[in-house]
């Protein structure tokens, strides 16, 4: 008995601060948030009554919220496709062997060190939608290269606007995805490649049948990481456009409702965002848990 507590007591004592803090500040506050989202607290006044799922029904049938979801989907699809594509291609090219690989790796990875807010301020200018004489940023570059027909309104475009906002995000995170894939490429044992070559596989077949299949766990991790970042996107949009209707996503909408003191609505949006993120994260957790169990 005494031996038992000696075994598990100290480790439990050591992790308990983290557990307590996480319990209060993450899980406790999630519970508090969900509680607020089921009340009619639409102002600063603390009095409120339980209204069940009324806020959720109202929100999901609201054009404005659906518009923000559409923007989020547009952003997420372009962002994920872009980072996965560029990250994969770059990693592949580095894996094929270039001189000064370290320099390329740093060059591609470095944008990740910049905060979304800082790059947002720069891209706000690059994506300026003025054309012709007053053009600045990318439109000015097109103009001076004689490619004036490429000028466009970027995020001012009604439907495709969010794809333009995804550009800075792709620029920042492709390098990170590249680093993940590169680690995956390096994780493929040299013997396997040699064996394939011995069997007469061409370079393409070597990659297609030997290397790529071993990258799928990496691809899944990259997908999860990038997509949950995308769902939470807030700072990038705030610094490029501010909180305006045209580029509204659920996170910026939540900010607007919070600052106009509609606490119940704000909490409802936050809960929906959490559910959306868990759609991606829970399958991932299950998958990792299973593979860890299998390895044991």
């Amino acid at each position: 008995m005494r031996k038992g507590i000696r075994n598990w007591g100290p480790p439990l004592l050591l992790v308990s601060p983290t557990i307590i803090i996480l319990g209060i500040f993450v899980y406790g506050l999630i519970a508090a948030n969900i509680q607020v989202s089921t009340t009619n607290r639409h102002s600063l006044a603390p009095e409120s009554a339980f209204v069940g799922l009324e806020n959720y029904v109202a929100l999901l049938s609201e054009d404005r919220f659906l518009h923000s979801l559409f923007n989020l989907v547009m952003f997420t699809v372009v962002f994920i496709a872009g980072t996965m594509l560029f990250g994969f291609i770059w990693a592949w090219m580095l894996d094929k062997g270039v001189s000064a690989e370290g320099i390329f790796r740093s060059v591609y990875l470095f944008p990740m060190a910049i905060s979304f807010v800082a790059s947002g301020v720069v891209w706000r200018w690059l994506l300026n939608s003025a054309e012709g004489d007053r053009a600045s940023g990318l439109n000015r570059i097109f103009e001076s290269l004689g490619l004036g027909f490429l000028q466009n309104a970027w995020w001012n475009e009604p439907i495709w606007g969010m794809a333009a906002i995804a550009m800075p995000a792709i620029w920042q995170l492709s390098g990170y995805v590249m680093a993940l894939f590169l680690a995956g490429f390096r994780g493929v044992p040299q013997e396997l490649r040699e064996a394939a070559r011995m069997d007469g596989a061409s370079e393409w077949k070597l990659y297609r049948y030997v290397v790529f299949p071993q990258l799928s766990p990496i691809a899944l991790s990259a997908l999860i990481i990038v997509s949950h970042m995308s769902l939470k996107v807030f700072d990038l949009i705030m610094s490029i456009t501010g909180s305006i209707y045209q580029t509204e996503v659920p996170a910026t909408y939540m900010w607007v409702t919070l600052t106009s003191n509609d606490y119940a609505k704000s909490a409802t949006i936050a809960t929906i965002l959490l559910l959306l993120a868990s759609l991606f994260i829970i399958p991932y957790l299950i998958q990792t848990w299973r593979s860890e169990k299998a390895n044991r």
């Binding site: 994506l127 003025a130 007053r134 045209q246």
Partner: peptide, 12 residues
């Protein structure tokens, strides 16, 4: 009608 006379990049 007034919006027909404004700069194209006004939203930003």
């Amino acid at each position: 009608q007034l919006l027909d006379f404004v700069n194209s990049d006004y939203v930003g």
